[in-house]
Design a protein around this nucleic acid. Structure first.
Length: 274
DNA sequence: ATGCTAACCTGCGCGC
DNA sequence: TGCGCGCAGGTTAGCA
């Protein structure tokens, strides 16, 4: 499900609920229906935050960051994670794993069928482990053609694999890597270190455009993504290549191709991209 | 040292 | 209708 645009949409939804709740959201208690996500949830460290006020939700890469008056914690959605505000009295769903009960009867629930998600306290001990290796935010001014091109210099992998490497730039996953490369008219199999500065500049612009448009559209809804407001995104309607193998390119009518590289399906148009 | 593969999980859609 | 297989938005340990 979630690449940067989807996480950003979830973040905005939760932040809006926080701002419009009318009164402070004080964490009464965490409830853990199960603890074995990708990493075992550090239950005791999170319980230390009970009694604190939730101040802000932000995003770094594909992580949601919850800031409270007693410290921070983070949530990574993995492939299938989602947050929702759970109406009082509503039954839990099969894959609900964590619930935050606030003092004013509000409950936020984390659901994750495949359990690839991550929960962790975010403090001086875990900061470096979780966020230390991450590259620049693609929508920030720090992500420039110069920075991107420099990061590609010593990489012999495919450009597509490099774009998905969170050390090079964060937030771009399998869908948006293919989509951005299409927009920049660059073939995914090009060697990263062979990309000209000119084309690196085009790709930086393409990444910013694709991610921005996806956020505006509420993200891409593939099978199960929904925002914190339980609405589906519709950016998938604008996908030019992702999951369109064998279909006609919307620009040149050539048949969209697919190949597995570095373990992931990669889509491109042989007519538009070189 | 880098890069690729397999593994972590569950669910869904497809072909037989 | 049902079963087995392959595949899915992410990350990373471990191996070449």
């Amino acid at each position: 499900m979630p690449e940067l645009p989807e996480v950003e949409v979830v973040k905005s939804g939760l932040q809006k609920k926080l701002e419009t709740s009318g009164e402070p959201l004080v964490i009464e208690r965490f409830e853990f229906l199960r603890k074995d996500l990708r990493n075992v949830i550090p239950v005791n460290a999170l319980r230390e935050l009970e009694g604190s006020e939730l101040l802000k939700i932000s995003r770094r890469a594909k992580y949601l960051i919850f800031s409270t008056s007693k410290g921070d914690f983070l949530s990574h959605l993995g492939m299938t994670g989602s947050w929702r505000q759970q109406p009082r009295g509503e039954d839990n769903r099969t894959h609900d794993h964590v619930k935050i009960h606030f003092k004013n009867q509000i409950t936020w629930t984390y659901c994750d069928p495949r359990r690839f998600g991550v929960f962790d306290r975010l403090d001086s001990k875990t900061q470096d482990l979780r966020l230390g290796h991450l590259g620049p935010e693609p929508l920030s001014d720090e992500f420039t053609a110069d920075v991107f091109w420099a990061a590609l210099r010593n990489r012999s992998s495919s450009l597509k694999a490099a774009v998905m490497d969170q050390k090079v730039v964060v937030g771009v996953g399998n869908i948006y890597a293919s989509e951005a490369l299409f927009l920049a008219r660059i073939k995914p199999s090009v060697k990263a270190h062979k990309l000209s500065h000119e084309r690196a500049k085009k790709l930086v612009q393409a990444i910013k455009i694709v991610l921005s448009k996806a956020i505006q559209a509420g993200g891409s809804t593939i099978s199960d993504f929904e925002s914190a407001e339980s609405s589906a995104g519709y950016f998938q309607q604008q996908h030019q290549v992702y999951d369109r193998a064998g279909l006609a390119c919307r620009v040149c009518s050539a048949k969209i191709k697919v190949a597995v590289t570095a373990g992931r399906s990669t889509f491109w148009c042989p007519g538009c991209q070189s």
